[in-house]
């Protein structure tokens, strides 16, 4: 029997290999293959129509694709940095609370519990120009006498989406940074106090280096999340109007499922993966550097 000749360690991990191959490797290879075909969902025979690198060339030459690519990087950069600063602030505040901290931590996690689709609908209503909460409040308070087109104006629409994204996910940063704050040894802090350091100096030179690895872990996780952002944008603006909020995955989703051009959508998806790979490598390098600084790695 062949299986008797196989090493025991391999036999033991074989089920895991088979499952991983079935749910990850095969779909990945299939989508990679289909990106070299003219595959349309409504015409199954096109799956065998090999067109070489046509889809990739089309994506690379497409202004719409690169505009969406650029917008995704902009979206990612702003959302990630805002979430980091706000999360850091929240964590620092909560870490100072001595009574009811557990309750605060639970409340802080509420936005994470909402489905992104729900958050999208919630903010779509809040920012609606006609019946939305924000415009009604501004008009009632006499701060504005016009209907501000939150989800239409080029800058305001991106702001509204980023606002929703930040509202939902800042607590991811806050929770991870809070965990970092709890793990800081007290000795250096006390030594700094004795040496007469100001609170800013203590934070800058002691607290921050200790929590940097946690910040970079949060950055790496969230960068992957935001780079794949779809639900909130799809619900709030569907990439519009006039492609003003089009990001990679609204474009790819529409191309694949509405236009049924799965081959082209997969090619755009593979080009986009480089974005996720770049950010992951970048943040892991930063994480490693932060750990080296703390003497936790070489």
């Amino acid at each position: 029997m062949i299986y008797k000749k196989l090493p025991q360690w391999f036999l033991l991990i074989l089920p895991a290999i088979i499952i991983l191959a079935a749910v990850i490797l095969i779909p990945l290879l299939f989508s990679l293959y289909s990106s070299f075909t003219s595959y349309r969902l409504t015409r199954p025979d096109t799956l065998f129509n090999w067109i070489g690198t046509f889809n990739y060339e089309k994506a690379v030459k497409s202004g719409v694709f690169w505009a969406a690519f650029g917008r995704t990087i902009l979206f990612l950069t702003i959302a990630l940095n805002l979430e980091m600063f706000l999360g850091l602030g929240l964590a620092l505040l909560v870490s100072r609370v001595t009574r009811g901290q557990r309750m605060l931590r639970t409340i802080m996690m509420f936005p994470m519990m909402f489905s992104p689709v729900l958050v999208g609908f919630q903010f779509k209503f809040i920012f609606n120009d006609n019946v939305g909460l924000v415009n009604n409040a501004l008009q009632s308070l006499g701060l504005s006498n016009s209907a501000i087109p939150w989800l239409v104006d080029e800058k305001l629409a991106m702001f509204s989406i980023i606002f929703a994204e930040v509202w939902m996910s800042t607590s991811v940063f806050a929770i991870l940074i809070l965990a970092g704050l709890f793990s800081i040894p007290q000795d250096p802090q006390e030594a700094a106090k004795v040496d007469g350091c100001t609170p800013w100096q203590s934070f800058r030179h002691i607290t921050l280096p200790f929590i940097m690895p946690f910040i970079f872990i949060a950055m790496a996780i969230r960068s992957l999340d935001v780079a794949r952002a779809y639900d909130i944008v799809q619900v709030m603006t569907n990439g519009g109007p006039a492609r003003r909020t089009e990001i990679l995955w609204t474009l790819i989703g529409r191309t694949g499922y509405v236009d049924a051009k799965m081959g082209y959508a997969n090619a755009m998806g593979y080009v986009s993966i480089f974005l996720a790979i770049f950010f992951t490598i970048y943040f892991f390098k930063k994480l490693n550097a932060a750990r080296v600084e703390l003497g936790m790695a070489r």
Partner: peptide, 9 residues
């Protein structure tokens, strides 16, 4: 301005 500014969505 005869239509709501959000009409495009």
């Amino acid at each position: 301005g005869a239509v709501p500014p959000g009409t495009t969505s």
